[in-house]
Amino acid sequence: MPDGSQRLEATFKCRKLSAYFGDRKIVREVDLDIADRKVTAFMGPSGCGKSTILRTLNRMHESAPDARVEGSVLFSGHELYARGVDPVDVRARIGMVFQKPNPFPKTIFDNVAFAPRLLGLARTRSDLERRVEEALVNVGLWTEVKDRLKDSALGLSGGQQQRLVIARAIAAEPAALLLDEPCSALDPASTARIEELIASLARRLSVVVVTHSLAQARRIADAIAFFHNGEMVEFGPPGQLFEAPSDPRVKDYLVGRTG
C-alpha cells in the first residue's frame, strides 16, 4: 500500500470485477468509477449483488468461506487485489458499516477506541480520548453519551448504535466508508440523522452506500449505480437515472414491477 503523506484521492476504479460464492457468480464483470468525496449509491432489486460488490471494495467479500473475486479494483491508483496486498491493511483504510448495527459487547468508549488502539493511532491516553470524542461528535452522538461512556454499547437504541458503529469506523481514519443499507433497521427519525451524517462525511471522505430506498438515494446520492443480476445496468447522477432511465430494467424497478 502507498505510504505518501498527502491526502489520497480516494477513488475506486473497478475493471471487469466479478465475485463468486463457490461456483455462483454474484457480480458479473462490473466496470465502475467512484469519485472522491462524493456519495455514491448502489441500488437494485434484492439479490442483484449490490452488497457483494460493496464488500469487494474493501476485500471483505473474501472473509466468507469459498468466496472469490476476479478482476481489478484500483483504489487511488493502487491495485487492491495485487499480490502482496494484505486485506487486513485494506480494511484499515476503507471502513465499512453493516445493515444491522453491530456494536461490540463493550463500553461505548471501548467501541470507538477499538480501531485507534488496534492500529496504534493514539500515542497517549488523552490523544485516545480526544479521538473518541471527535468521532462521537462527528456522528452527533457526543452530547447523548458523554456522561455514560463507560456504559455498555448494547444499551443504546438502534439508531444510536448505528451512529456509534459509524463513529467506530471513522475513528480508524479511513479514506473511504462503505455503508451497507445502514438505515434499513432504523425508524424514520434515526434514518434522517444518518442521512445528514452521510452528507457531512462526504465532505471529507468517499462514501459508498447501498440502499433500497429510492427516496433516500435521491436525497443523498451524487451518483447512483443500478445493478441487476450482478451486472451494472446504469450509472449516473440521480437526476438522469430517475428522470430518464435508459435501461428498461431500471424503469421496471422505478415503477415497482421488480424488487
Binding site: 502507498p2 505510504d3 505518501g4 503523506s5 498527502q6 491526502r7 489520497l8 480516494a10 487511488s76 491493511d89 484499515a92 483504510r93 488502539r117 488496534l118 492500529l119 496504534g120 493511532l121 471527535e134 468521532a135 462527528n138 471513522i170 481514519e173 479511513p174 479514506a175 471529507r204 471522505l205
Partner: peptide
C-alpha cells in the same frame, strides 16, 4: 479530523 491515509500501522501491530 485528518483525512490522510498515511497511517503507520506497524508500531501498533508490534
Amino acid at each position: 479530523m485528518s483525512a490522510g491515509v498515511a497511517i503507520d500501522l506497524r508500531a501498533a501491530r508490534y
